[in-house]
């Protein structure tokens, strides 16, 4: 049976700048990887701070192992020791690499000699062993991020929260950190919740993607994500979407893949447009919603395609439920994931 480690019920948290995070219900199961996906300002960091018990909601509840956690909990420090958060721009304490890794263990009253081996193992896994005595001020951005990760992972907490761990890193460091996260999670029963604004990364690392936009969870992903069979030679291939149309994609990958199309990259029109875009087909409007100053139109063509357009375009096209519209997008606008 699946056990939730963390649960959020009817949560609401407002800030002076007018931003409000509102989550009716969310739960995080033991041993799973979750990604919080959304643009900057979607509420990912706010939610992580609440889940790490560093902030508390004005309304609603956060439950850890089915028990409510509030700022007045007498065992709050003990609860915080069961969860740890690595910030987007992590702070490293003045001193050496090894002193930083030992910090959280020291807070748990563990003597250095007892954990020496464990520290060595963690630093080795992240390729930081040779830097163990280096002053943290001399580390590069990638090394700093890895050290912050090592400092958190070594604590073996029940949940690990990562706030955009690769936001400022180049591709090489991003790949090595993603590999490390995947490896560590494969051997562990802990829960990982990671914020990212990179959908490809979200798909690479987890199956559970939570879409946040304007402080709210989007029940329908504003991103169009599909399973498809990618076929063909060269970079331009075709992808047969399950129960949907066949589309053109630009990728080196083939076989069973996940596809993503940014809803802002799809053009809606009343008639077929003559353009360089290789993908153009007709569908029927099944849903119309307002999302943050934009209109989200769902057009069905076997599967649902979500398209974000302005109010002006919405009015000009006279969009209504049941209306037939053409969808047009470039082959390169389709992201091909794992």
């Amino acid at each position: 049976m699946e056990k939730p480690v963390l649960k959020v019920e009817n949560l609401s948290r407002s800030y002076k700048d007018g931003f409000t995070l509102q989550i009716p219900y969310l739960e995080f199961q033991e041993g799973k990887i979750y990604t919080l996906f959304g643009p900057n300002g979607a509420g990912k960091t706010t939610l992580l701070n609440l889940l790490a018990f560093l902030d508390f909601p004005e309304k609603g509840k956060i439950l850890f192992r089915e028990k409510e956690v509030t700022s007045k909990n007498s065992n709050l420090v003990l609860l915080r020791k069961k969860i740890t958060l690595v910030m987007q721009d992590p702070y490293l304490f003045k001193g050496s690499v090894i002193q930083n890794v030992y910090y959280g263990l020291e807070l748990r009253s563990l003597k250095f000699n007892e954990v020496k081996e464990k520290i060595g193992k963690a630093l080795n896994m992240l390729g930081l062993w040779k830097l163990r005595n280096r002053d943290v001020q001399t580390l590069s951005g990638g090394e700093r991020q890895k050290l912050a990760l090592a400092r958190a992972i070594i604590l073996d907490t029940e949940a690990l929260l990562l706030d955009e761990p690769t936001a400022y890193l180049d591709e090489v460091y991003t790949a090595s950190i993603e590999e490390f996260i995947s490896n560590i999670m494969a051997k562990s029963s802990r829960t990982l919740i990671m914020a990212t604004h990179n959908l490809e990364q979200a798909h690479r690392l987890s199956k559970e993607i939570i879409f946040l936009l304007g402080g709210r969870i989007q029940s329908v992903s504003p991103w169009n994500a599909y399973s498809a069979e990618v076929r063909g030679e060269g970079d331009l291939k075709t992808a047969q979407i399950n129960s949907g149309p066949e589309i053109y994609v630009v990728t080196k990958k083939s076989g069973r893949r996940r596809l993503g199309i940014d809803p802002k990259n799809i053009i809606l029109s009343l008639d077929r447009i003559e353009s360089s875009a290789l993908n153009s087909f007709k569908g029927k409007v099944t849903s119309i919603k307002e999302i943050n100053d934009l209109m989200q139109i769902t057009v069905k063509r076997g599967v649902d395609f979500n398209i974000l357009i302005t109010h002006k375009s919405f009015a000009e096209l006279k969009i209504a439920l049941g209306k037939d519209l053409y969808l047009t997008f470039k082959a390169s606008a389709v992201e091909v994931f794992r």
Partner: peptide
């Protein structure tokens, strides 16, 4: 002192005194 020090210490399990 950098504002992140407090948050980092708390996130790693420090109590008020620590």
């Amino acid at each position: 002192v950098d504002k992140r020090v407090k948050k980092t210490a708390l996130a790693l399990g420090a109590n008020g005194r620590q």
